[in-house]
Design a binder for these strands. Structure first.
Lengths: 196, 196
DNA sequence: CACTACGTGGAATGTTCGTTCCAAAACTAC
DNA sequence: GTAGTTTTGGAACGAACATTCCACGTAGTG
């Protein structure tokens, strides 16, 4: 039988997520990875392929974690409007509390790599569609419940919320100001108000 | 007297803007710059300092151009709400028409460099403040005119519009979909409606 | 026409890049 | 304990990196 790996593949992948998330793809060297992951060069290449493949695996790992978290969030039986507000406050808190100002890994990947790397572009575009679709479902529920107005279609509101959230994640990379972000959230949430 | 430069400093700087804007800082090598700018290595270093200084000069050049364009826009004597709508449609058109999907240079710089480069962070944060302040002025005018409601403060609406616009510029780097962007704009603009 | 001064072209600097390779260590199965 | 297989540590690879340097060319001045 082969000698077993001396490291936990997923734990190392999570470390890779943090490294790439923090500094981006180009600015993170393989040496940085070897140092930061605590594994050997050869193990890195044997286990994950090359640098780009590791980046993609890390990005997918991050996406899956976000996705799982979001699904748990979504399944709560509370008014849809409250869920959405919590989603924003959670994202804002995360941004404000992060001393490294990492923002959102998927947003960072979109900016740095999407226009020149079709594989990355496919991942971030698919994630966008998935995320908007799940938001749409929650919004539709809210519209049925009456906690969200019908002035705009659920699909358009979903796109809108996703875009605004993305904008906040950019802001959190430069100037993560709690009150400013909350103000943005309040205005964004006001589009859902069931005044109609 | 010295021999004059054989190139137009500002024209070359504009080329540098396009190169860095398109590929980012790390992915653009000095060789790319020498090839793309059409000037010699030595001239590049003599005239602009090193790579990072050239990037900063390019970023400032871009910011100044955007700033000038925005001021001209702002000074038109039309209802504020129309100005804001035109600002969005203009930004969306630019995004959709750009085959290189460059997005916004300042947004790209925020994501790639702001958390790790204080000089860049200062530039993008100052630009954010300036831009939001100018938006606030337009919105205040609209509130006085009655074309924009007073449900939120002009400052909050300005922050909100800036953030949403930023989100659109991220989207334009991955999936510049005209109708999706217009939908986002419509929802965002609905926060300004003078229904009150 | 010659002198001077600076821009220009391209070679050369040392460093770091991503990747590969190999001998030695480590672990399982017999 | 030994055989067999795979990970591991670290050296080694060529290519590309940002930057510097210098001889040459060219323009303006006296």
């Amino acid at each position: 039988m082969p000698r077993p790996k001396a490291f936990d593949e997923e734990a190392v992948l999570q470390k890779a997520v943090n490294l790439f998330w923090c500094r981006g793809y180009e600015a993170t060297s393989v040496q940085d990875l070897v140092d930061g992951l605590g594994i050997n060069r050869a193990s890195l290449y044997d286990t994950y392929g090359d640098k780009r493949e590791l980046y993609i695996k890390a990005l997918e790992h991050y996406r899956d974690a976000e996705h799982n978290g979001f699904c748990q969030w979504m399944d709560q039986s509370r008014p849809a409007i409250d869920l959405l507000r919590d989603l924003f406050t959670g994202g804002i808190r995360q941004s404000v509390d992060d001393p490294q100002q990492k923002g959102c890994f998927l947003v960072n990947a979109t900016i740095e790599l999407a226009p020149h790397d079709p594989a990355i572009a496919r991942i971030v575009a698919a994630n966008q569609r998935t995320f908007e679709e799940r938001l749409r479902q929650v919004i539709e529920r809210g519209q049925r419940e009456g906690s969200i107005n019908r002035a705009h279609s659920a699909a358009d509101l979903a796109r809108f919320l996703f875009t605004t959230f993305t904008g906040l994640k950019v802001m959190s990379r430069a100037r993560p100001d709690l009150s400013a972000m909350q103000a943005v959230m309040d205005v964004a949430m006001s589009t859902l108000q069931p005044i109609d």
